[in-house]
Design a protein around this nucleic acid. Structure first.
Ligand SMILES: [Zn+2]
Ligand SMILES: [Zn+2]
Ligand SMILES: [Zn+2]
Ligand SMILES: [Zn+2]
Lengths: 167, 167
DNA sequence: CGCCATGTGATATAAGATAACACTATGGCT
DNA sequence: AGCCATAGTGTTATCTTATATCACATGGCG
């Protein structure tokens, strides 16, 4: 499959409950396959991260947990996020100090993101050969790449229309 | 000139004072040309950021300022950094919440970095066509890119040798 | 049963960044 | 010179993000 992402994923535009339940289903399969334990806490945090397609901060997750009546402290959330990161179930968006669900966990991939400064949505893309290109150039300089962070900020098509000129 | 960066820039390996004085000289020229004021504070912070080729945190700069006998508070540093960022004199390394001097200020460029997890050095590179490639792919999805963040973490050649296996 | 590994709860604190307000320096103008 | 507007600084307090630490629980296993 090529990049299956669409841009400007407003929650109203699609059955987002599917996004969430699919994500949980994928996570359960993947954890079972890898012998990892998707505990209650971890599952809940993953669900909360998937509440939207915009990256969500750790403390926002914490707020949501508390609103659900769960007594939680920062480490609760960070530990769950750490687990989810390790298993590729979420990615960290460095330019926002926030986290977003990965739509294709399990397949190794360098996460590449388009981040809309208007609506906040993050769209994970994969530009063919891009990661390879960086590794190759780094190797020429004797540098061994372990992880890549590629984030492009700007405006999605919808947000370009809403805020066209120097409004 | 192609990428003139070398990797693994230990301070002992080269006359780093040149790196610093060159950076200041470039900054002064550039500010004069742009009608921007490189005040004492800003110049000092730029110098401190250039103390090494490893990105330096805002609070490290603050520490250094204080050791130089200058009374400063966080906003002092952040304001200076903001100015330097605006004028392209430093770049922010998102994966480290830190700042590093730009070796080619004045020329618009999407900063791309190799970040060594061993020695901490940051090497700015420019992979031909990479930025364009991302913009093009984004445009196909209707997304207008404003800024890009490209950071590759790993080990420079020297640090690969020092820490070869699972040491 | 005792032991170890993994996960959790709770408190405190570190690290990074900004808000707000008062004051000063600078340069253009009359 | 005196005045003004703008840009820059000092200071304090606060906010946001992330970890360290220690105590407790749970479950597998010799
Ligand atoms: Zn959705
Ligand atoms: Zn948008
Ligand atoms: Zn140098
Ligand atoms: Zn190194």
């Amino acid at each position: 499959m090529a990049t299956r992402a669409t841009v400007g994923l407003r929650l109203k535009d699609h059955d987002h409950h599917h996004c969430i339940s699919d994500a949980i289903a994928r996570a359960e399969m993947l954890c079972q396959r890898n012998g990892a334990r998707l505990t209650e806490n971890r599952r809940r945090v993953l669900e909360l991260v998937w509440q939207s397609h915009a990256p969500v901060g750790a403390y926002e997750v914490l707020e949501m947990l508390r609103k659900d009546g769960i007594r939680a402290a920062p480490p609760t959330v960070y530990r769950a996020l750490e687990f989810l990161l390790e298993h590729g179930l979420v990615h960290r968006i460095e330019t926002r100090n926030a986290f977003v669900g990965c739509p294709q966990p399990g397949q190794a991939h360098a996460a590449q993101y388009l981040l809309c400064d208007g609506c906040g949505d993050a769209v994970e893309i994969e530009i063919g050969g891009l990661a390879r290109r960086i590794e190759t150039r780094a190797a020429e300089l004797g540098f061994a790449v372990a992880t890549q962070t590629i984030e492009a900020r700007g405006l999605c098509s919808r947000c370009q229309q809403s805020a066209p000129a120097g409004a």
